[in-house]
Computed example of a mutant assay.
Amino acid sequence: MANLTFTLRSGRRVGVTTLGDPSASRVVVFCHPAPGSSVFDPDPDESADRDVHIVALDRPGYGSSDPWPFGTWPSIVRAADDIAEYLRDLKRFEGPLGVVRPATVGIAGWSAGGRVALAFAARHPDLVDRVAVVATPAPNEQVPWIPPELQKLSDELGQQPPDVALSRLSGMMQGQADAVHAADGEGAVPLDMLGAGPADAGALQRRGLRDRLGRMLIDAFRQGPAGVAGDVLSYTARPWGFDPGDVQAETVIIGGQADPLAGQAHAAWYQKAIPDARMEMVPGVGHLVIAQAWGRVLSHLAPGTAS
Rank of each mutant, 00 (worst) to 15 (best):
G195M: 03
A229T: 03
P239A: 09
R207K: 15
P74W: 08
H53T: 12
D66F: 13
A226C: 12
G15D: 01
I146C: 13
A196N: 00
R130V: 05
L191W: 08
P275C: 10
D192Q: 14
L153S: 05
A188D: 12
D49C: 07
F30W: 08
S64Q: 14
I146T: 15
V128G: 04
L157D: 03
E149M: 13
L153Q: 07
Y86M: 12
H300N: 04
A119I: 04
P74D: 06
D178W: 02
A188P: 01
F70L: 15
L150G: 07
G230S: 09
G256Q: 00
A121D: 01
L301E: 02
K272R: 15
S65K: 04
V52Q: 06
A48I: 06
L169Q: 08
L97V: 10
T104F: 07
D243H: 13
A293M: 06
E250N: 12
V128Y: 03
F221S: 03
Q151K: 12
D192N: 12
G304A: 13
D192T: 15
P96Y: 05
L4F: 10
A108I: 00
V133E: 05
A237Y: 08
W145Y: 14
G15A: 12
G256W: 00
G61M: 15
D155R: 14
F221V: 14
V128P: 00
Y270H: 11
V100A: 13
L298W: 00
R92T: 13
Y270K: 05
F120M: 11
A165V: 12
F40A: 02
A112E: 03
E141W: 09
A265T: 14
